[in-house]
Amino acid sequence: MEDISIQSQIDAINRKLDFILEEIMAQKQSRESREDLISDLSVIGKDAFSHTVSQLDKAGVEFDGEVLAGLLVKLIRNLGNINELMDTFESVHDLIKNVTPIAHQVGLDAINKMAEFERKGYLDFIRELGRVGENITTHFSPADARDLADNIVNILETVKRVTKPDMLVAVNNAIAVYGSLDMQNIEEFSLWKAFREMRSPEMRKGMGFMVNFLKNLVKQQELRQKRQ
């Protein structure tokens, strides 16, 4: 039994030694492969360097080893910055990939909205407004525009007063009355008939309105002249 146990231990030791030898051989082969690769790359690098120097010499370009060494030092020194720059490029690339579908959809929405405006006639309306602007610039000079700028406050004040509800009602009444008149068949009045009409309540109110209107108009003119 002891002989069998010793033999088993020896076999186990032999297997371990075989495994160790296989690992050593594998490492040796790997080292030899690396050395061969380094040797081949060294030869290729030397050939490439010689070819590059030859081509530069033929092209009349002077090769300065110190400049190249300085460039390599700068590259090594700025590897961190180069890495950050590459990260930035990757971020920009990702941003473009994310924004492109959104921009595409926005473009489609804009095209659809413009088509909708075209169907509703908004674009035609805007074009006609352009013609309005052309007519204004054609019929009015820069001096007219300056006068408008100088008097815009008075114009807006006038518009403000005219657009009051009572003023709008009065203007609408005047327009309605004027529209109801038949200008081709206006009744003629003699002096006597006009005198009799002036005795009517409507004419008295009308005359009172005209007298008060003219009196107040003159007062406003006098006040404005005093202010000036």
Rank of each mutant, 00 (worst) to 15 (best):
R127H: 06
M210F: 14
A12W: 05
R146V: 08
H104S: 15
L108A: 15
D124M: 05
F63D: 02
L79M: 13
M210G: 01
K215S: 09
E187M: 08
R31K: 09
L108K: 10
A48L: 13
L148K: 01
R204M: 11
A48D: 12
V61T: 15
G206Q: 11
A59C: 06
T137N: 13
F117S: 05
D40G: 00
M198L: 14
N154V: 03
K164V: 06
G70R: 10
M203H: 04
D109H: 08
F63K: 10
D57N: 11
I186R: 09
S42T: 12
S54R: 11
A149V: 03
N83I: 09
I175A: 08
G45N: 09
L79S: 10
D57V: 02
S190I: 06
L41N: 10
P101H: 07
N98E: 15
Q184F: 07
T138A: 11
M183F: 07
Q27G: 02
L95Q: 09
Y122A: 07
L156G: 00
D109S: 15
E2T: 15
D18Q: 14
E134K: 07
A194W: 11
Q27D: 13
K58E: 14
E134R: 09
K46T: 09
D182Y: 02
D36W: 05
N216A: 13
A194S: 09
K28P: 00
P201I: 04
F49T: 13
R196L: 13
I13T: 11
L79E: 11
